[in-house]
Amino acid sequence: MTQIEQFTEPAGPGTRVAGVGTVRERMRAFHRRWPPGDGVGVFHEAYLTTVRGSSGHGGGVPRAAAGTLEVRLAERYLAALDAAEAGGRPPECWRPLFPYRRHPGVRPVQFALAGLHAHVAHDLALAVADVCCTRDCEPAALEGEFDRVGDLLASLEERIHDDLMPGPDLLRIADPLTHLVSSWSLERAREAAWSAAGVLRRLRGFSSQAEEFRRQTDAGAGLVVRFLLTPCR
């Protein structure tokens, strides 16, 4: 199995998955590891804070059962972090964040949106495929879980805009950051992820075609991530 395949191969029925407590502690461990201002840490802090805030209302990783879409989505993200921290090769969509993580020309909101796009456009599609394979079901059976994840991601996007987007007194209409942020849509990214998950499910049993589709999905997400990380100053 190649380094890419270890992140893209769907889990089969009976595959052991991490418990909720393990996922939560791993997220906290990464949060404690990075210094303030780290680009990857900017996204991670927003993600972790959103998860903590939603846990008391029935959403987020802390209240989700092992094997649910919420947890499998977090596991995809953590696998990418593990690979990068170990000097390996995370999925292509995640790779640009690591060399750019201390770039002075990339603003915090860019890191956060780039991480959110990689998480939605790549991790979410594969997490849906993971759960479908484990439960031997079609994506339609996961619509409720997908909607709950969508609510969590919408809260994360709102937090990113509220906490990291410069105010109107600092951000001119001609500022390139205005163009970058307004060019990205969470709803479009979620719709694409849902469609990609359906294709992956239909390609089960055709491993080479499924792997090629996963690579293309990863590469497409990576292009958008690079765009979002364009230095703006």
Rank of each mutant, 00 (worst) to 15 (best):
L113M: 13
V109Y: 05
L164Y: 05
R63Y: 03
G56L: 03
A86R: 11
D130G: 14
D162C: 06
G60K: 07
D82S: 09
A154G: 07
D130S: 15
P176D: 05
L126Q: 14
E85D: 11
S155V: 00
D123W: 04
A66N: 14
D175V: 06
L126M: 14
L81S: 07
G60R: 04
P139I: 15
Y77L: 10
L69Q: 03
G88K: 07
G150A: 09
D169W: 06
I160Y: 07
D162N: 13
P139F: 13
P176E: 03
G105H: 02
V149D: 00
F98K: 12
R102F: 03
I160K: 06
L152Y: 01
G115T: 09
P166L: 00
P104R: 15
A174I: 08
V61A: 11
A79V: 11
I173F: 08
H161T: 13
L142I: 10
D151Y: 12
E75K: 12
A65D: 09
P168H: 15
V71F: 02
I160L: 13
A112V: 05
F146G: 07
V109R: 07
P108G: 06
H122V: 05
V71Y: 00
E70T: 06
P62M: 03
L156W: 01
G144E: 07
D162Q: 14
A125G: 11
A140R: 15
A112N: 11
A125D: 08
A141I: 05
P104E: 12
E145H: 09
E158S: 11
C133D: 11
R135I: 01
R172W: 01
H57Y: 01
G56T: 00
I160M: 12
V131E: 15
L124S: 10
L97T: 07
D123Q: 09
A118H: 04
R101D: 07
P108Y: 04
L152K: 04
V128E: 15
H119D: 14
